[in-house]
Design a protein around this nucleic acid. Sequence first.
DNA 1: CGCTGAGTTGAAATAGCTCAACTCCTGTGG
DNA 2: CCACAGGAGTTGAGCTATTTCAACTCAGCG
Lengths: 215, 215
Amino acid sequence: MYATAQSSTHRSANPGLAGLASRPAQSWPRRIELLAADTEIYAQGERSGTLYHIEFGAVRVYRLLADGRRQVVAFHLAGETFGFEADRSRSFFAETTVETGLRMMEPGDYDQCAPELMAAALRGMVRAQEHLLVVGRQSAVEKLAVFLLDLAKRQGDNDQIDLPMTRNDIGDYLGMTIETVSRNLSRLRDDGILRLRSSRCIEVLQPERLRKLCQ
Amino acid sequence: MYATAQSSTHRSANPGLAGLASRPAQSWPRRIELLAADTEIYAQGERSGTLYHIEFGAVRVYRLLADGRRQVVAFHLAGETFGFEADRSRSFFAETTVETGLRMMEPGDYDQCAPELMAAALRGMVRAQEHLLVVGRQSAVEKLAVFLLDLAKRQGDNDQIDLPMTRNDIGDYLGMTIETVSRNLSRLRDDGILRLRSSRCIEVLQPERLRKLCQ
DNA sequence: CGCTGAGTTGAAATAGCTCAACTCCTGTGG
DNA sequence: CCACAGGAGTTGAGCTATTTCAACTCAGCG
């Protein structure tokens, strides 16, 4: 299931920019684990502790309700670190969304409490709370606009956006159905704001108008 | 605007139980600042750093959109600590929802990085992400059930729940309108699950049925 | 005792959901 | 290299939960 890798598709242009702090390279092991798309990294209830640094690819972190409804609480892209938990056991599931290269780190003890870990944890909290505003208080188009601009920024502010996840993932991240995602992307396309190069690649034609949609 | 206090209404029965870790008493100053209801504690953009420990009362932490839509990202009750930020400046607003007693602490430097602060920050992140599931993926009744059970637990699992906030606050916390909050509370009352003793006090008549609603 | 803000209830409007049909990739095997 | 199968995405039509707008009640307070 694992293999050591040095190349893959879906590589992000700009590691280090993104959400959670990137860490000094020497503290991460050399070895990169290559995981296929849709591979489980950890599951709710498992013992927590291990942190992960994404070399390339993307990861969804999510939670489930009993009846299968799913909320993706975060996507993590190349250059980002994830796996922080408050407890000894995982509160969430983590899976790759595309072929992904990971470095793993056993932080020994959280109480060692490196400042960078603290910073990353705090950033994770703020990101989650900002996401709450989007999910709770914005309309479908607004949600998509925020999502796309966030992705664009994390990929180095190209007007070409790579979507390393399905419409289903996006829907479960933004709290809406796959059909609503699709319809509203089409709407943004019809308005001349986006061009849908392929289902996994979007070109932003009018960034200002997209930005205006975020409020 | 401030005064030193030793008593107030809306005191929570069970400090220390709640969301963010309570800290060793000696690290907090003796002095309690008394704030009236709806008093600003800090605003978005202000310099961050200060942490707050709630002696009694309640606080809402929220974010605004340009057009005034509001998302309450967290309520904090007696015994809880709040004020963590990832940045040098505040990402959120914090206000009292009722008359509240606070102790303030300048943590000098976050990089000192006490393990308890790390733990509290991580719990904050997990709470926010769990809240995301509720806001993004649950129906109005389900949201209210989760909200009430959470409040009950934090108040010591009485079947009497004190609501130290308005319907507006609740709606902005759960991502719904004040009318939907009201209608669904009435519905739970009509179903015999709740008794609305007053607009700020709810008695849970059938906890199991309420729990079942959460999925 | 009446005023005011909070909460409740009703009716109509609507954004997003559900169900269903259809298209379009993509990748696999002949 | 092509054909075809299956999954992912799109589009349509009708439905429904929630919102919006409005009227009304109630509790607390000067």
